[in-house]
Amino acid sequence: MRRPDQGGDRPTSDDRRTTGFRQDFDARARAARSDFEAQIRQRRAEFGVRNEALTARTGRNLPAAIAIALAFAVVMLASLLVFKPVFMLVAAFLLGVGVYELASAMRFAGRDVPRIPSVAVAVGTVPAAFLGGQDWALSTLLGGIVLISVWRLVEVAVARTKPSVQNVVRDLTNGLFVQAYVTLLGACVVLLSAQDRGERWVIAFILVVVAVDTGAYATGINLGKHPMAPRISPKKTWEGFGGSVAASIVVGILVTWLMLGLPWWTGIVLGVLISGSATLGDLTESMIKRDLGIKDISSFLPGHGGLLDRIDSILPSAAIAYLMYLVIVR
């Protein structure tokens, strides 16, 4: 056996050098990790500041808007191109949620629009439009408006506290407006998709709507100086509108030529009409929110407003695209 003073268990110089190397390596690794985490925090803070400034200038959370737009694009493209009848489910979801949001916002403002029959009419109009065409869609919508009106009158009849006649008339007209604004215009998308090569038309006009939004955003944020409708939407400018028209014409020519097989000049017509309808849809939504005294239609998309806020430009543009299809193709 080794005696204790022989140093059998004492660390050698090599062991000490190895231990020192490990400690030095660990210290450097911890320092590098701390520096990396600090850089990540700094980048996040800078991104947050830039995003807040951008949101203040444009009135929207751009990263969230892009993410939501991409998600919708994937779902809509898949339903239209893989098996078109599935698009009925997508449309029913969008219109049902949109009607629920608008009816709820009106009720929040003291306008009693029945939500259950309103949503049922919106959802029921989708298969009627896709499978039965214009006649079925209009019949379902008109019958639904009668149902919503009767529903509200029954609510008034059984209520303990009777609202004034003026308020009842206001409720009925607001219920009619919800169906005309969301369901009727949304049904145009469904009617268009059900046509021969209609899925291409739906994709084409939505691409033009995206071009309108992108052109207005890029031009407005960089060149915008003259407000377009300051009382309705203070951030909209005439420069942004000009950019939206230019972008919509370029994309309109491309989609009509490459996707629809139509003469290039029809793309100019499509671009000009869609730029006007999309802008009108956006302003209409702003007027509704201002009239109701709210910032967003709902909080369905956390931190980003409601679903109706995202499709406000598509709804009136769908009617324009459907009418163009009927004039050009039929």
Rank of each mutant, 00 (worst) to 15 (best):
D309N: 03
V327F: 14
G110E: 12
A73Y: 09
V251F: 08
V255H: 07
V119C: 05
G220F: 05
A29C: 02
G271C: 07
G303R: 07
Q195W: 05
T140P: 00
S275I: 02
G305P: 06
F72I: 14
V146T: 12
L280M: 15
L323P: 01
L280F: 14
L260P: 03
L223F: 14
L260C: 08
L70P: 00
D35Q: 14
N222D: 01
V269D: 03
S244M: 11
Y217W: 13
G98F: 01
T183I: 10
V208C: 09
Q134D: 10
V158R: 13
V97S: 04
R152Q: 15
V202A: 09
R43V: 15
F205M: 10
M88S: 05
D5K: 10
A318L: 07
R330W: 08
T183F: 09
Q42S: 15
L89H: 04
D309V: 03
R57H: 11
M106D: 03
A204D: 03
D282K: 00
L176P: 02
A157L: 13
D135E: 13
A71K: 02
R330C: 03
V272C: 05
Q42D: 15
R10W: 03
A128M: 14
V329P: 00
A129F: 06
A120T: 11
P234Q: 07
D312S: 09
Q6P: 02
R43W: 11
S298A: 10
F21K: 10
E46F: 10
G305V: 02
V182R: 04
L315D: 02
M1V: 12
D309I: 04
V182C: 06
L172T: 04
P4Y: 10
G240V: 07
R197N: 13
R22H: 12
A159F: 11
T19W: 07
V99L: 08
P302T: 10
K162E: 12
E37Y: 13
P63M: 13
R10E: 13
I221N: 03
V90L: 06
L308W: 00
